[in-house]
Each structure stands twice: as C-alpha cells, then as structure tokens.
C-alpha cells in the first residue's frame, strides 16, 4: 500500500523537553490509522507537525510525498482537513454562516453544507447561532466544517471526546462511509473502544515514543494468554487454556449441559496499553 504519511526518526523538542522521540510510522492510502495515547503523550504535537503547524526538531515527516513544510500551498490545503481541540467557530454567526465561509475558502458548493451537517446529525439546526450550542454540538459543527471539502486525508484529534454515545456512533458511521469513499483518516483518541471499532491499525504512543503498532486484532492476539473463561450454570467460572486436558474438561461440561457462557480472554487495547506502559489511558 502506498503511504500517504511517512514519519521516520521524528523528534520534537520544546524548551529542552522532548515531546516526541524517534517516532516512526507510515499511514497507507485509504487507511483509518489510530494514534493512541494518554494526554500529554505527543498525539497533538504529531498532528501539528503533520499539518505544518509545527516544524520537527529532527527526523522526517512527509504527507502526500512532500515534507510537511511544503503543505502551506492552497493545493495541499484542499487535500487535507484538520480537527483539533483548539479549533474555533464564530460565535455570533449561525452554523450555516460558519460553514458558508469555509465553502468559499475551499471552493466547494454551498449544497455541501447540508451533506456535511447530515453526517453529524445537525442538518435541522443550521440556523442556530453558534454561541447557543452545547459543547457536543460545537464539536459536531467543527467536524462538519472539516468534512465540507471531502479531503483525501483527515486529521481528527479526539473527534468524539465531548459527544454522547448515540452521536459518537452516528459520527463513526459517517467516518466509515467517508473512508469507504477513499478518505484516509488519522485519528487520535484515548477512547480504546473507538479505536477498536474504527481503526485498521493503531500505534500506541507513550511519553513521545511509539510503543506498539499493529492491527487491533493482531495486538489483542499478541497479548492474549490464549485462555477462555467458561461460565457454568451453577455460577462457577473456570479458566481453560489450550491442550487435551482443557478440551476434555470443556467436553465434559458441554455434554452435561452445564455451560452457560464462554468468553475469550483477549485483552482490550486499554489493557495492552497499561501492560506495556504501566500507565492508565487518561
């Protein structure tokens, strides 16, 4: 797969403090790539470097095959969209007026406003003044603004952080549809369930370093202890690993109709993160 983002040996230092240290990864065209880590791990710094808002101290960061310092031309700016935690809206204007400005800036027809708002479940609210919106609605308007020009590459920094589960679900569906049309998505989150649901591959970032990088399923398998928990009808739960003895036990319980449920003991991405870094994901 061709890479749309290439990062190698990336280092970023702020006032003698290393925010990123020897970060390496590629993101392929059409991929949903999750960049996961707790607050302060370097996720936003990486997005800022990849969108040309920060210069790397050392190493290489390329997007669309060009160094990120070359991204400030209108040609490249039309090819990507960014939603970060410091994106803002014009509070005295309506949702429609906010988005209309960006339609003009990106040279896209005004009808895209309806489509983008539909995707974030706000189509009926477009006349509302931004200052009257809840935090979750603001986040959805910002996301709609990012989607207006249907970018080839989307950088989303905690896109569903302020949203309720129903709206998060709606946005996940929209992102999947967008991805199916070919948009590559670079997603930072500390919501491991979101990452498992959406991402083709994830990188776990801790203290400015990528600790693990793989498909969520592969990571879970890698860190799995290959056991299953069997819950019996009498309330007991037994943990079985592989091998003839475990198979015999399982067979006996099943023949005797004692099995109520069977669970695999694969760890979640959150469990893996804690195991690798010793830190909670907050």
């Amino acid at each position: 797969m061709d890479s749309i983002i290439t990062v190698s040996s990336l280092v970023k230092v702020f006032a003698n403090q290393k925010a990123l240290e020897d970060v390496n990864f590629n993101v392929g065209h059409g991929e949903i790539f999750g960049f996961l880590g707790p607050s302060g791990s370097g996720k936003t710094t990486t997005i800022k470097i990849l969108t040309g808002q920060l210069h790397p101290t050392d190493g290489k960061a390329e997007v669309f095959g060009v160094p990120t310092s070359a991204l400030n031309s209108p040609y490249y700016r039309k090819k990507f969209g960014v939603l970060t935690d410091n994106s803002g809206l014009y509070e005295r204007l309506s949702i429609f007026d906010n988005l209309k400005l960006y339609c003009d800036l990106y040279d896209v027809p005004v009808r895209r406003i309806d489509e983008a708002l539909d995707m974030v479940n706000l189509k009926a609210e477009q006349k509302k003044i931004v200052s009257k919106l809840s935090k979750g609605m603001l986040q959805r308007v910002l996301l709609a603004r990012t989607l207006l020009h249907e970018p080839d590459l989307l950088f989303l920094d905690e896109p569903t952080a302020a949203l309720d589960p129903a709206n998060s679900q709606h946005i996940h569906e929209g992102l999947r549809q967008l991805n199916a049309k070919g948009t590559t998505i670079f997603l930072t989150t500390h919501d491991m369930q979101e990452a498992e649901d959406l991402c083709d591959r994830v990188a776990l970032l801790n203290k400015g370093r990528v600790q693990l990088l793989d498909q969520p399923k592969a990571l879970r398998r890698q860190f799995s202890d290959a056991t299953v928990t069997v819950e019996l009808r009498d309330g007991r739960a037994i943990i079985l690993s592989t091998g003839p003895e475990a198979a015999e036990t399982m067979h006996t319980h099943m023949v005797n109709n004692e099995v109520a449920a069977i669970y695999t003991n694969e760890p979640t991405l959150g469990d893996i993160f804690v195991e690798v870094t010793g830190r909670e994901l907050i």
Partner: peptide, 14 residues
C-alpha cells in the same frame, strides 16, 4: 481569542 484564526491559516487562503 476564539481560535478561529488557526482555521483560516489552515485553509487554502494564502
């Protein structure tokens, strides 16, 4: 103040 200048700077506007 409202973090909207960043949006303009990241748009295709020169």
């Amino acid at each position: 103040e409202k973090n909207t200048l960043r949006g303009l700077m990241l748009s295709p506007a020169t």
